Amino acid sequence: MLDRIDFEPLFFAPFVSSSMRVEEEWTDYNGHLNMAYYSLIFDRAMDEALSLLGLGPDYAGRRGASFFTAESHVRYLRELPADSPVRVALRLVDYDEKRLHLFQSLHHATEGWVSATSEQMALHVNLKTRHVMPFPDDVLERIATMRASHAALPTPEGIGRHVGMSPRL
């Protein structure tokens, strides 16, 4: 993972994470990936994408700011057994001077099907005051570039959904 940006990044649409593998200890007594570890996988992919924006661990140390997730909505669509190879596709849906709206889909890395999606709102936070703060201008420029590359993507299935009872299954 990148710790600093010393080049102008190229933003693919969508961003696709490194390949990961479902570890045996991440599975539960049902024989599939436990729900807590879906969040771990999504978080690791988000860290990769944020590093490309220049917002990785080095940024937190140098500028005293980072990201906190304010809200997330995960949909579990298909089981993943231990040892499954996975990748996450991430798109920047929207942003403003302090927030990122992201949508991620977890894919089986060799077969391509979607196992889960995660939609989240991330806040740019001053690590000393623990308050939300605006992005620096150089970061906003990279965010705008990423958003422009993601703008042509079709609306993801499931974005904006809420939790509630649907018609009978």
Rank of each mutant, 00 (worst) to 15 (best):
D6Q: 12
D83T: 03
S17Y: 03
S84R: 01
W113K: 08
E24H: 15
L140C: 14
W113G: 09
R21N: 14
P57N: 11
L10E: 11
F67S: 09
Y37C: 02
L10S: 14
A89F: 08
E111K: 10
E119T: 00
V93P: 02
P9F: 05
Y76S: 00
R147H: 08
R62T: 05
D83E: 11
T69N: 01
M146Q: 11
D138E: 02
V125R: 06
R63E: 07
L100E: 03
L90K: 10
T110F: 06
D96R: 07
M20V: 08
D47H: 09
P154V: 13
L140D: 08
E157A: 13
H162G: 13
V163S: 07
D3N: 14
P14T: 01
P57S: 14
R99Y: 08
N126D: 12
A60P: 00
Y38C: 04
F135H: 11
S115P: 14
S166N: 15
H124D: 07
V125Y: 08
A122M: 15
A148D: 09
L92Y: 06
F15E: 00
D83Y: 02
S39L: 15
H150D: 04
L102W: 10
V125H: 12
E71K: 08
F12P: 13
E24K: 13
E141W: 12
L55Q: 06
R130Y: 09
L90H: 12
F7N: 07
F67K: 03
M146F: 13
P85W: 12
L123W: 07
R63L: 03
D58Q: 13
D137C: 12
R147N: 06
A152R: 03
M20G: 05
R87N: 11
A36H: 03
R78Y: 01
L140K: 14
F103D: 05
R147L: 06
Y59V: 11
L92G: 03
R168H: 15
D47R: 07
A82V: 00
F68H: 02
S105N: 05
P134K: 02
L53N: 12
E157V: 12
L106D: 01
R99V: 01
L123H: 08
A152K: 06
H32P: 00
L55A: 03
D43R: 03
H32W: 07
A65Y: 01
M46R: 12
G160F: 01
V114T: 05
P85G: 04
M35A: 11
P81H: 13
P14G: 01
S39P: 13
S18D: 15
A13R: 04
H108W: 11
L77Y: 04
H124P: 09
P81Q: 07
V93M: 04
A152N: 12
V88R: 11
V86K: 12
S84N: 06
L10V: 15
P134Y: 04
E24C: 09
D43L: 10
D28C: 00
L90M: 10
A122S: 14
N30Q: 05
H150L: 00
I143T: 00
R75M: 07
R87K: 08
E8S: 13
A122F: 10
S19E: 13
F42E: 07
L33T: 03
